[in-house]
Amino acid sequence: MIETLANALPHFRNTNSGQFFLMAGPCVIEGEDMALRIAEQVRTLCDKLQIPYIFKGSYRKANRSRLDSYTGIGDEKALKILQKVGQEIGVPTVTDIHESDEAALAAGYVDVLQIPAFLCRQTDLLIAAAQTGKVVNIKKGQFLSGEAMQFAVDKVRQSGNEHVILTDRGNSFGYSDLVVDFRNLPAMRSFGVPVVMDVTHSLQKPNQSSGVTGGMPQLIETIAKAAIAVGADGLFIETHPTPATAKSDGANMLPLQQLEDLLIKLTRVRDAVR
């Protein structure tokens, strides 16, 4: 699975390690210094542990609960920061897009275009992302089974792009909770694409009365270990030096200083199940 991704990302790091790959970074680009600092620290850890690494950061947050929720520092400014991270730190980058006309714009700055879970059935968006030639990471809708994601994969492939990743981020459970059904990972892996577990978003507590999403970060290690044990090719983890001050999704982020210990444990799990 990782070999397919490596073909699409010539500068993808450590693809022969046999380890899972990692998508990690802040929820949203808050500024250049922070983005570079996070990317450098995570890359250093991943180099030490031979974990292929993709830096994650949203250039704009479109799905917000309230009108006054933080959305970003400006599209072009944030995209240029993502580009600088890729160039200076030497890692691939991923960001999410929300409308078809954003695909070509973002593709000029990053290596992987991410389709948010709520938008995974939007045909025009998937086609536009596919036609850029970039790797397309499609998050599984909270309302869909793993098996149903075959059709999203087909839309990208039938648009001429074989570089597809599928990411699970839990399923809606009632109005204000998510649960992870680990049957979805092997189901999606059967389509011949790399499969990722979005560990931090799957621990969200959405639709809180305050209009600010909650979370259960104390379960990050639990979900991550389970995902590796059932064969996930990669993990998606949002991390921040001080989650309490993060502009978005701080309630379910992993503190950056805890990442090394977690990754060491996860490499041991991966070694045990290989």
Rank of each mutant, 00 (worst) to 15 (best):
F20L: 11
N14A: 10
K84C: 09
N63P: 05
L79W: 00
K56A: 03
Q50A: 08
A78E: 03
E3Y: 08
D75Q: 12
V42F: 00
Y59D: 00
L45D: 05
D75L: 07
N14H: 13
G18Q: 07
Q19I: 10
A62T: 14
R66M: 05
I73E: 04
E32F: 06
E30N: 09
I73S: 10
E3N: 13
L79D: 01
L22D: 04
H11G: 11
A8E: 06
L49M: 11
L79C: 03
R60A: 08
R13W: 07
R60H: 07
A39W: 00
N16Y: 09
P52Y: 00
A62S: 15
A39C: 04
E30P: 08
D75K: 13
S65W: 05
L45P: 04
I29P: 08
E76A: 09
G74Q: 05
P52S: 04
R43S: 08
D47Q: 13
C27G: 02
T4C: 11
G74E: 02
H11T: 15
E30Q: 10
E76L: 08
L79S: 04
L45T: 08
K84L: 07
V42L: 04
G57E: 00
L36G: 06
Y70W: 11
E32I: 11
I2S: 01
I2T: 10
K56D: 02
Q19A: 13
P52L: 00
L67N: 13
R64M: 04
